[in-house]
């Protein structure tokens, strides 16, 4: 089941550049929350803070608090945290030296899972959830690189799902894909929210409108507005949100 997230006064830096200037946000469990905003508004940094990936880059700094189910993520071991908070990246990044199957079970193997039947069952389950099973079931031992771009991205989603996280972060997962592949991924996200809390960064407002239950608008490192998607898109409170969604900037 998905977990709730509660972000309090989150600030983040890249070197001397402050990319997040005090974010406060509540993220409901088992919902799709879209993060929208122009390039450089801090939306990627924001999701990367949630699985503590931001800190892995040199010269970065984080302040503030993020609670995952009432417990601070900074009290958890980042390695353990990332098993609870999965991530899918903008660019599909399957491990090129591994087969499709090995890619999916890579995270389980990291957890020390050795039982072949369990691994296989989990690989099938994850690939089915990622709507990729039918396309790859006959060539699981082929390289992950033999798949198309959209299939590779679904493979990466399956890989993230196999670890059974409770939160799934997606950093523009469909931005490098064609419309058909994008439709697949969006369909998938709608189904996944039954079991996961999903945070998706997107620069595509139509996409946010199609899939998100709630939408947050970021601008210059600040959270301008967060509310139900329908409200954000039809009746925003803030002038800047309105300007952005009507295409006046960004």
């Amino acid at each position: 089941m998905g977990h709730s997230l509660s972000v309090r006064n989150l600030e983040a830096w890249y070197g001397s550049n402050k990319t997040l200037k005090g974010i406060n946000m509540e993220i409901a469990p088992n919902q799709v929350t879209a993060i929208i905003g122009p390039s450089g508004c801090g939306k990627s940094t924001f999701v990367r803070c949630i699985n503590r990936m931001h800190e892995t880059l040199p010269g970065t700094k984080v302040k503030g608090e993020i609670l995952l189910d009432e417990e601070s993520i900074y009290d958890r071991d980042p390695v353990a945290l990332r098993k609870m908070v999965g991530m899918v990246f903008q660019k599909a990044n399957p491990f090129p030296s591994m087969s499709i199957y090995e890619n999916v079970v890579a995270g389980l193997r990291l957890n020390g899972m050795k039982n072949k039947q369990t691994l296989h069952a989990s690989a099938e389950k994850s690939l089915r959830m990622a709507a990729l099973w039918d396309e790859v079931k006959d060539r699981l031992n082929y390289s992950g690189m033999s798949l198309s771009g959209g299939q590779q991205q679904r493979l990466c989603i399956a890989r993230a799902l196999a670890v059974e996280p409770s939160v799934l972060l997606m950093d523009e997962p469909a931005s490098a894909l064609d419309p058909i592949a994008t439709t697949h991924i969006e369909e998938l996200i709608r189904q996944l929210k039954e079991n996961y809390t999903i945070l998706i960064v997107t620069h595509n407002m139509q996409q946010a409108a199609r899939i998100a239950d709630s939408t947050a608008f970021f601008l210059n490192g600040e959270l301008v507005e967060h509310g139900p998607t329908s409200e954000i898109f039809t009746n925003p409170n803030d002038k800047r949100t309105e300007d952005y969604i009507t295409g006046r900037f960004g």
Binding site: T56, V79, G86, F89, N93, F95, A106, L110, A160, V163
Partner: peptide
């Protein structure tokens, strides 16, 4: 080795050594 490979491993809950073992070394072998 592209940084995406390292992040792919880290995001799965890999330790630094596991990241090197599954993402960096195979890519660079």
């Amino acid at each position: 080795v592209p940084n995406e490979q390292r992040e792919a491993a880290l995001a799965l809950g890999a330790t630094k050594w596991e990241m090197i073992r599954i993402a960096v070394l195979p890519y660079a072998k």
